[in-house]
Write a protein that binds this DNA or RNA. Structure first.
Length: 272
DNA sequence: AGAGGGATCTTCT
DNA sequence: GAAGATCCCTCTC
């Protein structure tokens, strides 16, 4: 039991070190600060290194469209020690903003907590839930709209993810299976070391978290659209198909067989 | 395999 | 003062 405390302490100690090695080195290059010319700025090396990362224009699309587009893309988390965690997004939920009764921004109300939902597309909205967990969203186009990341397929850094996930669980536990590492919104935050400190960060600008395009091109038939999870009875909004996941992917948190059967039936009838 | 409850605390009414 | 975009453990069938 001291082990989990120790791990958490180590992580928070690492997190609290404000500087990153790469940035320290670059700070010392004594380059002229010129925000309009990336090639001469200290950010050039970073940009070059991440040349394939998703930029602001990718996130600047309507909420539902972004929720689908994020499927298959890869979330990268660079830990303070330089290690990188990679995970492919396999499940998302769209929260549309003012009209959406299930959204934190329902009624168009902006509060201290949900401010990031109203910020520019690509901004992270991280909130704490049930006092103990965190969930992460990506702000989209549209007032107060954002996409919740629900599940990732872990690609790289699985050992570290396992440590981070186990550290906050009580008692002696068996090692988690790969599919248990990131199959839920709070689990993926745990596995990737994402907490409130990441709220309002920009995915297109941050040194510790960003996205790169996934290798595969996905079609409509690869995506299942169904009801969102955990939002109770909020009338029609609870039923709307605003959750999206990759069909047949074993890293998805909740599979909806019924909807998949209906989709299959529709697909075969229209194909014949 | 499915149901139920506890943990735990910030946010907003 | 109550609820909450969750997770995990335990109990029962």
């Amino acid at each position: 039991m001291p082990r989990k405390r120790k791990l958490l302490a180590q992580l928070s100690a690492l997190q609290s070190k404000s500087s990153f090695p790469a940035f320290d080195a670059l700070e010392n290059l004594n380059v002229t600060p010129d925000r309009d010319s990336p090639k001469s700025s200290k950010y050039f090396a970073v940009e070059k290194k991440k040349s394939s990362q998703l930029e602001s224009d990718f996130f600047n699309q309507p909420c539902i469209s972004l929720a689908k587009s994020l499927l298959g893309q890869i979330l990268v988390r660079k830990l303070p020690d330089g290690r990188e965690l990679w995970g492919r997004i396999v499940e998302t939920e769209a929260y549309l903003g003012g009209e959406d009764e299930a959204s934190h921004s329902k009624g168009g109300k902006q509060t201290q907590r949900n401010t990031a939902m109203f910020m520019k597309p690509g901004t992270l909205y991280v909130y704490q839930i049930y006092g103990i967990y965190f969930c992460v969203n990506v702000s989209s186009q549209g007032e107060g709209a954002a996409v919740l990341l629900r599940s990732l397929e872990p690609l790289e850094g699985l050992d570290m993810m396992r440590e981070l996930r186990s550290a906050s669980r009580k008692g002696p536990t068996k090692p988690l299976k790969d599919w248990q590492l990131c199959n839920g919104p709070a689990k993926l935050c745990q596995a990737f070391g994402i907490d409130k400190d990441f709220d309002q960060r920009d995915l297109a600008q941050d040194a510790a978290i960003w996205m790169v395009p996934g290798p595969e091109l996905l079609g409509e038939q690869d995506v299942v659209a169904t009801a969102r999870i955990g939002i109770g009875n909020r009338g029609e909004w609870a039923q709307k198909p605003l959750r999206f996941y990759l069909r047949g992917n074993k890293f998805v948190s909740v599979v909806d067989k019924k909807t998949e059967r209906e989709m299959a039936a529709l697909g075969s009838s229209s194909c014949s």
